[in-house]
Design a protein around this nucleic acid. Structure first.
Length: 666
RNA sequence: GCACCCCUAGCUCAAUUGGAUAGAGCAUCGGUCUACGGAACCGAAGGUUAGAGGUUCGAAUCCUCUGGGGUGUACCA
């Protein structure tokens, strides 16, 4: 924050005279109250406000405005602010001095990290994100974890923390059993040699479909029965509604009817979906033949998985043969998205440690046998955390515990963030509860959860056939839309010199990929959001293209003025903030660091997105109202050029922390 | 059944963790300027923050209840 009220809060101690009835505040209170300085909601109230007078007044039994007066009497921020004003019930309004703000501008421009001070107490933060299952194509569901985790990692590093990123790959699960089974029965060596990734994903999809088919055949009659039963319940509920005599009974009967109708619809929908799966299979003779030939495929797949886990040489060899291709496949997507990890320790890495974990849990008295499985019962949960199945196999709770032990040993982190979707909330609660009983109290564990990506219909984003949407096809689509915009003939005609194909592609990639990342990060991570590609790549509104364009405009002015950004930075003097658009832009730029603190406090990158959009808007106003190259005097031109250069730096750096690139013109 | 999350402008979303008159964007309507790069800027309209109580100087935010939606819930991850 521009003002650092917590660094030196003598002003709260010294205010303890008459106004505060001699009340002495504890150090913790002082820190908390000093921290109650924040930006104002409305510029009429100045730039910042302190809200601490009201709660202090309650503590010492004095009128809040009197307390506020006592505080401002001793407040010594003359170099930074105009004299504070007391407003309303006891708000203290602060307005920064223009000369101070101007000094901040020059300092930021001359500083490699834009005036953001490294953290006082750097923490070692391990971030676990992305974690796709290999051997399955990456889909839309992987966007959030990957993009949010990457943005947090970049931002925390920028803030001076020691960040370790680890991609906890799903490289040891049932999907490999599926691929192995598929290869043994339907594999095509020639196709594998020619295009391993395509062949492996063909096998995965085929086996997946076969399993789904048999499950549908098995479950359909039950679903039909359930639908019939639900229909009966509806009929009874209808009868109850018409039989109800008084208003209260009628209302409660109607409520039950509504619930019954919903359940009926859900049951019917399920039955229809199963029916559709069966029908689609029956319309496909080749597939049906395969289905008939492999009736026990689901169990057989589990068997192949179990064999892999128990070091069966053949399956192990296949796994080792397939895995590199799967890794190549996801690495290609990461390269495209500009995502890197310090470590990629997948589930397979922990396989040999799982037995130890179960033993440690037993030794600690946490694990007990129940119904043939090894379970950890925790009093705060109804169902146990199962760490070993009755067939002896381990589960992801076991792997997560093993991972926890390893990470503590290897990386000694202060905190671990799991960027994983909300549906796994209960799993992490159990994991953390178990960890607390295993001596992990000093290590902060946090489930950084996020919501679902929805389609335009408000349902989880799926293709028409019900499968999840491939990640790469979305990226391709976004780039294609961006390219259309870049190549808009009207614009191309206007841009000086035009763009060659290479530059167009570069811009389309920056804008297309940026659009998807930006839209994801713009929403608070805990809320679900609607995936609307047209809005994401739009030039208007809160989009990456708008911010990227603001950057390009700033670069355009520097270019036209024949001034390199570095040269401007090297000779920067504090700018003159003569008109509101200049001051307002300066104030916004000065708050860059605050937005990063907000990201850190909540593990929520949307604060940085909001900030960048604000900065881009403030720059747009400045751009409109403040001529730079055609300014009235060379002095004003130079002064404004400082703001232009700093805007470009802030936007480029901020977008960079979100994993989004800029282009010098677009 | 139980547990957790959510309900904010016509639509999509914010709201610095309890602060002042709840903000943006899209869409709608109106306006500006001989374009330092117009993919611009300004304005209007739009709200009982699902509803009802409570806590206090002050509530979208905390507590209770009601309604509506989502997710999870013993051997998938």
């Amino acid at each position: 924050m521009l003002l650092d009220p917590q660094a030196d809060n003598r002003w709260l101690t010294e205010a303890g005279g008459a106004g505060m009835a001699g009340k002495v505040l504890s150090a913790a209170d002082r820190d908390a109250f000093a921290g109650m300085v924040r930006p104002t909601a409305d510029p009429r109230f100045g730039d910042y406000q302190s809200n601490c007078a009201m709660p202090i007044a309650k503590l010492c039994g004095k009128p809040p405005r009197q307390v506020a007066q006592a505080i401002i009497d001793v407040l010594d921020w003359e170099g930074l602010c105009h004299p504070p004003e007391i407003a309303g019930p006891g708000f203290i309004n602060l307005r920064l001095r223009d000369d101070f703000l101007a000094t901040v501008m020059a300092e930021m421009l001359g500083d490699d990290s834009l005036g953001v001070e490294p953290a006082d107490e750097p923490r070692t933060i391990l971030i676990d994100y992305s974690s796709p299952n290999v051997a399955k194509p990456m889909h839309v569901g992987h966007i959030r974890s990957t993009v949010i985790g990457d943005a947090l990692a970049r931002t925390f590093r920028y803030l001076g923390h020691r960040v370790i990123t680890d991609n906890h790959l799903g490289d040891w699960g049932t999907q490999f059993g599926m691929v192995i089974y598929g290869f043994k029965h339907f594999g095509d060596e020639v196709a594998l040699a020619a295009g391993p990734v395509d062949e492996l994903s063909r096998l995965y999809r085929l086996v997946n479909r076969l399993i789904a088919y048999h499950a549908a055949v098995a479950d359909h009659p039950g679903a039909v029965t359930a639908t019939a039963a639900a229909t009966e319940v509806v009929a009874r509920a209808e009868a109850a509604v018409s039989a109800a005599t008084d208003a209260k009974a009628k209302r409660s009967a109607e409520k039950e009817l509504a619930a019954a109708v919903r359940k009926q619809a859900a049951a019917r929908q399920r039955a229809e979906a199963l029916q559709a799966t069966v029908a689609a299979a029956q319309a496909d003779p080749d597939f049906l033949r395969q289905a008939v030939a492999h009736p026990g495929i689901a169990d057989a797949v589990l068997l192949e998985t179990a064999k892999l886990h128990s070091h069966d040489p053949e399956n192990r060899a296949l796994w080792e043969r397939f895995l590199p291709h799967c890794r190549d496949e996801i690495d290609r997507v990461y390269r495209r998205l500009d995502i890197r990890f310090d470590h990629t320790l997948g589930e397979s890495f922990y396989h040999d440690r799982l037995g130890d974990v179960v033993q440690r849990l037993r030794d600690a008295g946490l694990a007990t046998d129940s119904e043939g499985a090894v379970c950890v019962f925790l009093p705060e949960f109804d169902s146990p955390m199962i760490v070993q199945k009755k067939d002896g196999a381990y589960l992801y709770a076991t792997t997560d515990l093993a991972t926890l032990f390893y990470r503590r040993e290897e990386f000694r982190p202060d905190e671990i963030l799991y960027v994983v979707d909300s549906r796994q909330g209960e799993h992490f609660q159990k994991l953390f509860a178990a960890a607390a009983r295993l001596g992990f109290q000093g290590l902060r564990l946090e489930h950084v959860q996020f919501g679902t990506v929805l389609g335009e219909d408000g349902r989880p984003f799926k293709t028409r056939s019900g499968t999840s949407v491939g990640l790469e096809s979305l990226l391709d689509e976004a780039v294609a839309k961006a390219l259309e915009i870049v190549c808009d003939p009207q614009r191309v005609a206007r841009s000086d010199g035009g763009m060659d194909e290479a530059e167009r592609q570069q811009v389309a990639h920056a804008v297309g990929h940026g659009a998807i990342k930006y839209a994801d990060l713009a929403h608070h991570r805990t809320s679900d959001y609607r995936f609307e590609l047209d809005k994401m790549v739009a030039l208007e509104g809160n989009t990456s293209a708008y911010v990227q364009y603001a950057y390009a405009r700033a670069r355009g002015i520097m270019l036209k003025g024949g001034m390199a950004p570095e040269a401007i930075a090297a000779s920067a003097q504090p700018p003159v903030l003569g008109v509101p658009a200049e001051r307002s832009l300066a104030l916004t730029l000065a708050r860059f660091g605050e937005s990063l603190q907000q990201v850190r406090a909540d593990n929520a990158p949307n604060f940085l997105v909001d900030y960048l959009y604000d900065a881009a808007k403030a720059y747009a106003v400045f751009n409109d109202q403040c001529p730079v190259l055609k300014a009235d005097s060379p002095e004003i031109a130079a002064s404004r050029m400082v703001l232009v250069a700093l805007t470009a730096r802030v936007l480029e750096t901020g977008l960079g922390l979100l994993g989004i690139r800029v282009v010098p013109r677009m």
